[in-house]
């Protein structure tokens, strides 16, 4: 193979795999220097120029191996590149739960302090759900089940992009988040017909409550139950699909970006 083409292919391959352009250029420049030195060495040993160039390219190593080694070494510089399974399989849950707990604690501290300072009593004790209470609660739930999973996914995708880690890992993280977030059923009692009774008194619970429920399909082996849980209403479907959609957008954007960088690199070559 023509050496110039090999080096150009090497560069574009690195960029396509998500490595920075300047890193790809630097490595290709060093390989070009090395190839020239090898060719000169082989020419002085008596080989003609085409044979020397071919042998020099062989000694340099094949493109696939060089790309693989470069990508691997680059990924190993980053924690998520060294431990992708840990980062993208368990990381999303750890990050999401940490974010949830932090939000809850911050909100609790802020709300309790504000109530103590202003002397206002808990307005949710009156048994009536006002529009503002609906808005606040759904805002909080939306924050927890939509905004935070998206933020976790964006955070992980930035890490992945810095480390040149493939889109497959982002997809895995998105699926983990989707299944996990979709597991929760949250909202006011009107989303849970038949459920809201006080187990001690047997009386219906008031309408001013938010429920977070674990799925009953854990106790069932039926796939239909799983499907029924996730597809029970549009809200539940959104919980499941949002991380997947966000991941789709991230992957599409990064592929588009890599393609544009590749084109500009080709233009420079």
């Amino acid at each position: 193979m023509n050496t110039q083409k090999l080096l150009e292919g090497f560069q574009t391959d690195l960029v396509r795999r998500g490595l920075p352009v300047d890193y790809a250029q630097k490595t290709a420049a060093e390989l070009a220097d090395h190839h020239r030195d090898l060719t000169e060495e082989l020419l002085t040993s008596g080989l003609d120029e085409p044979a020397a160039a071919t042998q020099a390219a062989q000694r340099l190593g094949d493109q696939k191996t060089l790309v693989k080694k470069s990508v691997r070494e680059f990924q190993r510089r980053h924690w998520c590149g060294r431990w992708p399974l840990l980062t993208f399989l368990f990381g999303p849950l750890v990050l999401l739960i940490t974010a949830w707990v932090s939000t809850y604690l911050i909100l609790a501290v802020v709300v309790v302090s504000a109530m103590k300072l202003t002397g206002i009593e808990d307005p949710s004790n009156d048994g009536i759900v006002s529009t503002s209470e609906y808005l606040i609660m759904y805002g909080f739930i939306g924050w927890c089940v939509f905004v935070m999973p998206a933020a976790v996914l964006l955070f992980l995708s930035r890490r992945a992009s810095r480390a040149g880690v493939g889109w497959q890992w982002i997809t895995l993280a998105a699926l983990v988040l989707a299944v996990h977030v979709g597991t929760f059923k949250c909202g006011f009692v009107d989303r849970f017909p038949g459920n809201p009774i006080n187990l001690e008194t047997g009386e219906p619970l008031g309408a001013d409550m938010v429920m977070m429920s674990i799925p009953y399909f854990f106790m069932s082996n039926s796939l239909h139950d799983v499907w029924a849980w996730y597809a029970s209403d549009p809200w539940q479907c959104c919980q499941l699909l949002l991380p997947v959609l966000v991941a789709g957008l991230i992957v599409w954007r990064s592929k588009n970006f890599a393609w544009r960088r590749e084109q500009s690199l080709r233009a420079m070559c």
């Binding site: 630097k26 060093e30 080694k69 470069s70 510089r77």
Partner: peptide, 17 residues
């Protein structure tokens, strides 16, 4: 004995470190 180009990823890693 090795593919000579493979020295560069290692050099870059050591330089980064």
């Amino acid at each position: 004995e090795f593919g000579e180009g493979c020295i560069y990823p290692l050099l870059h890693k050591l330089a980064e470190r």
